[in-house]
């Protein structure tokens, strides 16, 4: 039965997450500016901190336009699916021992299911826009997400074997002696790569590769619907950072500081790392990306799974 507490908790989570994602946009732009020998937005408020608010106000007041040639219901639905699927995933993220919406027994599976949902958003947007660039972007997104999803799941199974649970709080608690990043280093790297691919960030931003497809699947979107895609992308980056923290970096565990602080610190450093990646790397070609996925990462992920299982069984005997 949903209690009032739970409803309040969900409301609070949404109320915190959405503005945080908006702040993240500003944070990334400033950080990119720092990496690229320029300033970034520094005019609105102290250090430009209100830039996202200004952008949000502007975008809210924009004409909510739907191209006449688009498939209306799908066109409207697509950005909603994206943002909602990502928001739902946050329900199972354990930020601290008491701060989680649901400590589900199948938390990890729920997360994987929700990331798979998110791809519908991109594919449907690409389809419904009835625009060739959007279609190409949507096709790329479908191929990329489906292939990277496979080994995203496989890379997590090593952790599941070691901890013996799909429950995220169990996984965190199982890391008290050693973070899984050490025994599961391969899994960690693979999950990170798959995570970047899932959130469509450079170097895996092919569905919206600006220099090739102008804006890819969201070419025809503007105003609040575009903002939802944007929000989804940044929420996705936060989610992936939080999941890596939870599954591989010991979640809230850490000495001296309160658990939530440890959790946020680890998440923030991962986010900074993602921004650095964006500043540092060029974009591979689409077929090169898929080739890397199927020919290298998938076998490695499977090898990792088999090796982990073997070690686990060896230990039991």
């Amino acid at each position: 039965m949903p209690t009032l507490d739970l409803v309040l908790m969900i409301a609070a989570m949404v109320a915190i997450l959405v503005p945080t994602a908006a702040m993240l946009v500003w944070f990334e732009r400033r950080l990119l500016g720092f990496f690229q020998q320029r300033y970034g937005p520094n005019r609105v408020g102290y250090f430009g901190i209100l830039q996202s608010l200004a952008d949000l106000i502007k975008i809210l007041f924009k004409h909510d336009w739907i191209p006449p040639f688009a498939d209306r219901p799908v066109f409207v639905l697509a950005p909603l699916i994206g943002a909602l699927a990502v928001l739902m995933s946050f329900a199972v993220v354990p930020m601290s021992p008491n701060l989680m919406v649901s400590d589900s027994n199948i938390g990890l599976l729920f997360f994987l299911a929700m990331t798979s949902m998110a791809v519908y958003s991109v594919v449907l947007a690409g389809w419904a826009s009835n625009n060739k660039y959007a279609l190409l972007g949507g096709m790329r997104a479908a191929a990329q997400t489906i292939s990277y999803e496979v080994f995203m799941g496989v890379s997590l199974l090593g952790v599941v074997i070691l901890s013996g649970s799909f429950k995220l709080s169990d996984i965190v608690l199982a890391q008290q002696n050693m973070w899984y990043v050490i025994p599961q280093f391969l899994g960690f790297v693979i999950f990170m790569i798959a995570g970047i691919a899932e959130s469509h960030r450079l170097p895996f931003d092919l569905p919206e590769a600006e220099t090739e497809l102008t804006a890819g699947f969201h070419t025809e979107y503007s105003g609040i619907k575009f903002a939802l895609f944007f929000l989804g992308e940044y929420l996705g980056m936060m989610l992936i950072s939080m999941m890596i923290t939870t599954v591989f970096l010991g979640g809230w565990l850490g000495p001296w500081l309160p658990p939530i602080v440890w959790f946020l610190l680890k998440t923030l450093s991962l986010i900074c790392f993602f921004v650095l990646l964006r500043a540092a790397l060029p974009r591979p070609r689409f077929d090169q990306l898929l080739e890397l996925g199927w020919k290298w990462i998938l076998p490695l992920a499977l090898l990792n799974l088999v090796a982990t299982a073997f070690v686990k069984l060896w230990g039991d005997f």
Partner: peptide, 16 residues
């Protein structure tokens, strides 16, 4: 050229 193949930063350094 670097930007066209997705590398965002070099252009900014070169503009400096």
């Amino acid at each position: 050229f670097a930007q066209d193949i997705g590398s965002l930063s070099p252009i900014f350094y070169m503009f400096v």
